[in-house]
Design a protein around this nucleic acid. Structure first.
Lengths: 338, 338
DNA sequence: GCTGGCACTCGCGCGCGCTGAGTGCCAGGC
DNA sequence: GCCTGGCACTCAGCGCGCGCGAGTGCCAGC
């Protein structure tokens, strides 16, 4: 176990390094922080911290920089979440309040987050998994062609074309529409399959094939669209990554274009709230020199999707976490209102 | 007017520079191209080309590189469009054929284009301006709340919530729905306002307010959604931009995040087909060291949207133009089928 | 009008030594 | 036992000078 002072030294190193982007030495440390001890003592402490793997030297006789493990300790034990100031909160709220539809909410959120944190922002569209069905609509486009429109309580609309095995009359369509809605409207996606199980039996034999086709398309939509969409922004902030960044930036850009990677990235927010993934803790190789701060957000108490930012491991964790949390909270509010 | 051989020299310079990314000198030129003259002669030609502003030296006693004006001449007079090979065509078609819906088509297109050209791809969603209405659907969500769903022939779906001034019965709703569709289905967006002008008169006085509200929402949707959406991809290719690119890349990333800028970028494709914007020809400052190759695409003969790529001015114009044209053609086919 | 020859230019890479921040270690003091 | 000042050592970065070589412009001759 590290002594109190050594933890203090680690904190000071992290803070200074995040601020200056340069390896920090013992003398500079004692000058900028009131540690109450001499540089020599700090040097000893640093030697210990290095042995334990919390800090490292880029090369002999340079200052120290925190390792991933060092940042991890910093985030877990040494730093809190820096709350937003009142004006900042107001600005967030104002900015998000102007949104006119779901796309706009997500778009504004992503821009806001990128701007506040000066990093790359990633926002997942509200998920369908935990949402409920508001309405299902069926439109006859041709005798044997039906368009299925699914409207969710989060304001999302999905449509699918269905080619029917047999012509399907307007009356049957209206019947199906009514039965469908009375069964699933207001219900959760997860419950829908069960609720529709015996629906085809209510129809004439000749229509059963078509009904089954429509239903299976609906179920497919529910499942497929659970793979969420994402929006990202603030990629220009990648240029602030580091000096050597031709090599650093490329894999990050590549990773950011793969939805799957991103979804996984946000994926594992534990229920307690925020998740911070530091450097090599990220499964994806290209993101080994980045940290990800993510959090769930939702219209009620429950999280329906996630959002977060991707930045260099050398980031202002308390500030970033504060911004991410605040934005998530206000987006949740906006969604609840609409 | 430049002599035939001088044009040939310019072509050789552009080709070599695009290939090597290094200033090209007179000796190297005569070695790689069968110009039939000596380096000294080429030097004289180069001096002329430089006087005319087609090429420049990064610094005294280095080779020459083409200027924007040089590329312009190259594109206009010296180079054609390099057609895709048969296997490439097949690959494009196969890749696009797998798409399941509009989002997927656009997504695949953007990835394909980025991969083929190794540049940043931008694809505009099929526009609503020139498209036609396939169907308008009205759903009663509450006594005084109606959801309006607009389906276009390009497979796009837009929805809007309408708060009615007075409760609106199911019968009236069905009536409105039927009348609406009989008037506008299959018609062009631009014609819709006129077609609906006297529709409220067909309804009882008590319903007219609601009908008017619904109609104005529909018209708004048509106008608003004419502001198109975009998808971009291949930003990782920006890292291949140049050696000095910390400064180059940032404004480009910033520009790419502004939809407005991008739309303008694609905006001015003349009807003849492809547009190539070279360097300073781009209005947006951040894109002064990039070239944009764009083209319209559409499901019929008519263009409903645009797509293109953004790359360094030093790009393989014939190849890029070939790829852009081929992709546009196949996307058009796919859209026509669905 | 093309060519070979020639003198000149200048960016780039290399090696050098200096500087200064930073380190590890040690002996002495609280 | 822990902290401290002192000291020798290390090494990345920087500036400098130098030589190389690709490339140029010009000129006289064919």
């Amino acid at each position: 176990m590290l002594s109190e002072r050594r933890l203090e030294v680690l904190r000071a190193i992290v803070q200074d390094y995040v601020g200056t982007e340069e390896p920090v030495g013992s003398k500079a440390l004692t000058e900028r922080h009131r540690l109450g001890v001499s540089p020599a003592t700090v040097r000893n402490d640093m030697a210990v911290l290095e042995d334990e793997g919390y800090i490292a030297q880029p090369h002999t006789s340079a200052g120290r920089i925190p390792t991933d493990k060092g940042y991890r300790l910093f985030v877990d034990k040494l730093a809190g979440v820096k709350p937003m100031t009142a004006p900042e909160r107001r600005a967030i709220q104002n900015f998000l309040d102007g949104a006119v539809d779901l796309d706009d909410v997500v778009g504004r959120t992503v821009r806001l987050l990128a701007q506040l944190t000066r990093q790359v922002a990633v926002v997942q569209y509200p998920s369908l998994t935990r949402s409920t069905v508001r309405h299902v609509e069926l439109l006859s486009l041709a005798p044997a062609r039906v368009m299925l429109v699914l409207i969710t309580d989060t304001g999302r609309v999905e449509q699918r074309m269905v080619d029917c095995p047999a012509p399907f009359g307007e009356a049957s369509l209206a019947d199906l529409r009514a039965r469908l809605n009375s069964r699933v409207a207001g219900r959760r996606f997860a419950d829908v399959p069960q609720l529709l199980q015996d629906l085809p039996e209510a129809f004439d034999t000749e229509d059963r094939g078509t009904v089954a086709t429509v239903l299976s398309t609906l179920l497919e939509t529910l499942v497929e669209e659970t793979e969420e969409r994402l929006m990202i922004g603030g990629t220009a902030n990648l240029t602030r990554f580091g000096h050597d960044f031709p090599l650093t930036i490329r894999p990050v850009l590549e990773a950011l274009e793969e939805q799957v990677v991103l979804l996984k990235l946000l994926g594992e927010v534990n229920d307690s709230g925020m998740a911070v993934r530091i450097g090599h803790e990220n499964a994806h190789e290209g993101l080994n020199s980045t940290s990800v701060v993510s959090v769930g957000y939702g219209s009620g108490g429950e999280a329906v999707a996630k959002l977060g930012v991707v930045g260099p491991t050398r980031m202002d964790y308390p500030g970033t976490m504060g911004a991410v949390r605040a934005v998530a909270r206000y987006v949740g509010q906006i969604l609840a209102e609409s």
